[in-house]
């Protein structure tokens, strides 16, 4: 009997991990966030779930690399999950240079999205983190607006 329960646990784990239901909440957040981006065409989503950072340490962040094309206007949107402890922000980098962000550290103002008018085809990086190094759950969306 114990062996049977062991087998069932293994099966449950396997079925659970491979089931689409495993990421149902995430899919809902992606759909809502993509819709909130406005009249644009969804291209990619970047789901992020991070633990809280250590006191005095660097806030944890998730990095994604993506290829962007010249003469294209993109929109980056960030949405924190309703039950997320921390508020997410998305930053765009070219090499080591910050070239876009949903958070303006000078004014302290947050934006749900920003547009990026790309003039150089190449690899860019986005970092998603939570303010004050809090734990959180969020999704970033890359959308296509138009050719420039």
């Amino acid at each position: 009997m114990r062996q049977l329960i062991k087998t069932l646990f293994s099966t449950l784990l396997l079925v659970g991990l491979t089931s689409p239901l495993f990421s149902q909440d995430n899919m809902e957040l992606v759909g809502q966030c993509a819709a909130s981006a406005g009249n644009v065409t969804y291209l990619k989503d970047f789901p992020v779930k991070l633990d809280a950072g250590t006191p005095g340490g660097k806030p944890p962040s998730a990095k994604f690399s993506l290829l962007l094309s010249k003469n294209t206007n993109y929109r980056f949107t960030i949405c924190s999950a309703p039950d997320s402890e921390g508020e997410a922000m998305l930053q765009l980098f070219e090499m080591n240079n910050l070239i876009g962000s949903t958070y303006n550290s000078t004014t302290g103002k947050d934006y749900p999205s920003f547009d990026f008018k790309c003039q150089v085809t190449g690899v860019y990086h986005i970092f998603i983190s939570f303010k004050d190094g809090k734990a959180g759950d969020a999704v970033g969306i890359l959308s296509f607006i138009e050719r420039l």
């Binding site: 876009g100 949903t102 920003f114 547009d115 990026f116 003039q119 150089v120 085809t121």
Partner: peptide, 26 residues
């Protein structure tokens, strides 16, 4: 070959939307 001339990026707020403009030329 692909050459890139660096330009000064711009950040503006237009109709409540934050827009970052890359002014490099490739």
């Amino acid at each position: 070959t692909i050459t890139i001339q660096k330009g000064e990026p711009q950040a503006i707020e237009k109709d409540g939307t934050l827009v970052f403009i890359q002014n490099d030329v490739s």
